[in-house]
Simulated scan of single mutants.
Amino acid sequence: MSEIITLAHGSGGKLTHQLIQGIFQKHFRNDWLLEGGDSAVLETLPGQMAFTTDSYVIHPLFFRGGNIGKLAVCGTVNDLAVCGAIPKYISCGWIIEEGFPLGELEEIAESMAATAQEAGVFIVTGDTKIVPRGCADKLFLNTSGVGFIPEGLRLSPALIRPGDQVIVTGTIGDHGTAILIEREQLQVETGLASDCAPLNGMLELITASMGGAVRLMRDPTRGGVATTLNEFTEGQSFGIRLEEHALPVKGEVSGLCGMLGMDPLYIANEGKALLIVDGAQAERAMELLRSHPNGRDAAVIGEVVADHPGKVYMRTLAGGHRIIDMLVGDQLPRIC
C-alpha cells in the first residue's frame, strides 16, 4: 500500500479494499463490521432509542490530549449519554484529502478503536471518500451513534424547578484553550491538555442511582457553559443564577483567557457535562460524580431560580450581578 492517500483509494477497487481491510477493519474489528454489508444489522434493546450525528473538522488534527478520531468517538458517545442513553453502536464516515499520510490515518483509527473500547461501544459501519488536494483540509470525519434509554428514565427542561442545583462535572474551558495554544503555537509553558473523554460510564452511574432527581444533562461543547445554560432557560418560566466563586477554572485557562480577552464560560469543553439536579439530592450527586475519575473536579456552580425567567445571570465576586448571554460570533472556529 502507498504511504499516502491517493485518489485511487476512493475508486472502490483494490486500493479501497486494502485501505478498509488494512486500517479500518484491522482496528474496528467486530462481527457487525466484518459482515461487510451495505448496512449493519443490529440487535435492539428494550426502551427508547436515541440517535445522533455530528461532523468533525478540528484544526489541528492532533493535539495534546487526543486527536480528531478520539474527539469524534467521545463527542458521539457524550451526545447520547447526556440524553440518558447507553451508547451502543457508532458509524464513521471519512472524507480524506489526497496526499494524507497513511501512518497518521492509522494512528487516528487506532485512537478511535481504543476510545470506543473504553466507552463500551462498537464502530459497526462506515464510508470512505477521497477528494483531490485542496478540496478538504486533510481530514473530516462524520460519526453517527445509537444508544438505548432505560425504561422509566426521562430528562427534560419541563422537569426543572426553582431550587434545583446546577452542576458541572469538572473544570471548564480546557479543550478550547488547549487547542488555541497548539493552533497558534503560543509560547506558554503549560501542561494543559484537552479534556476529551467519554462520559457515559460516569453519567450512567448518576442516572441509575438517582433516577428522577436528575432533571436534564448536556455537554457544553461549542459555545461553552454559558451558551448551554441559555439553551436550558430559553423560553422557560425559570432562570439560572451562577456563582462566580464556584466556577472551576484552571489557572492556565483563566490566565490565558485574561490575556486574550476571552471568557472561560464560552470556551468549548469535550469531556464535561452540565447537570440540573433536585436541590435536595445535589450532595448525593456530587458524591457519585467525585467517585468517578472524570468527575473528581465536579462543582455546584449555580441554582435554578424563579426570578429572571428565561435568563442566566451570575453573582460576581464583587457581589454584583451580570447577565450571561449566549455566545455571539465565534471565539475560536473549528474547535471540534
Rank of each mutant, 00 (worst) to 15 (best):
V225H: 01
A299W: 02
G258Y: 05
R222P: 00
P293V: 14
L242A: 02
G302D: 08
R218A: 02
C257T: 03
V225K: 01
D297R: 15
P248T: 03
V277H: 04
V253Q: 10
A273W: 10
T233W: 15
G239E: 02
A299Q: 09
V277M: 05
G279P: 08
E244F: 06
I240Q: 07
E287S: 01
R241S: 06
A299R: 12
H245T: 14
G295E: 06
C257P: 05
G295R: 12
L275A: 11
L247D: 02
R241Y: 05
G295P: 13
E287A: 01
M217Y: 02
V253M: 09
T228H: 01
E231Y: 03
L216C: 11
L229K: 08
R241G: 01
L242S: 03
I240D: 02
G223V: 04
P264I: 10
T227L: 02
A246K: 10
G258D: 09
E303Y: 00
E234Q: 14
N294K: 10
I301S: 00
A298S: 10
E283W: 15
G239V: 01
L275R: 08
L216E: 13
V277T: 09
E231K: 04
V253H: 10
P248Q: 06
T228K: 00
G302Q: 07
E231W: 05
N230G: 05
E244C: 14
T228M: 03
A285I: 08
S291H: 10
D278Q: 13
A299I: 00
M286K: 06
D263I: 07
V277A: 12
H245R: 15
S254C: 04
E243C: 11
G251S: 06
E287N: 02
L216Q: 15
L260Y: 11
E283N: 15
P248G: 04
E283C: 13
A246I: 04
A226Q: 14
P220D: 05
E287C: 00
T227M: 03
S237M: 01
Q281W: 00
F232C: 04
D297W: 13
V249N: 00
G279M: 09
R290Q: 15
G255P: 01
I240R: 08
N294F: 06
S254G: 07
D297N: 14
H245C: 11
M262D: 04
S291D: 13
G295Y: 13
G235Q: 12
E234S: 13
N269L: 02
S254F: 14
V249L: 05
P293S: 09
N269S: 07
T228W: 00
L274C: 01
K250R: 14
E303N: 03
C257A: 02
F238A: 04
G302S: 08
G258A: 10
L275T: 08
K250P: 03
R296F: 10
L265W: 03
S291W: 05
A298I: 09
E283Q: 15
I301L: 03
D278C: 11
E287V: 07
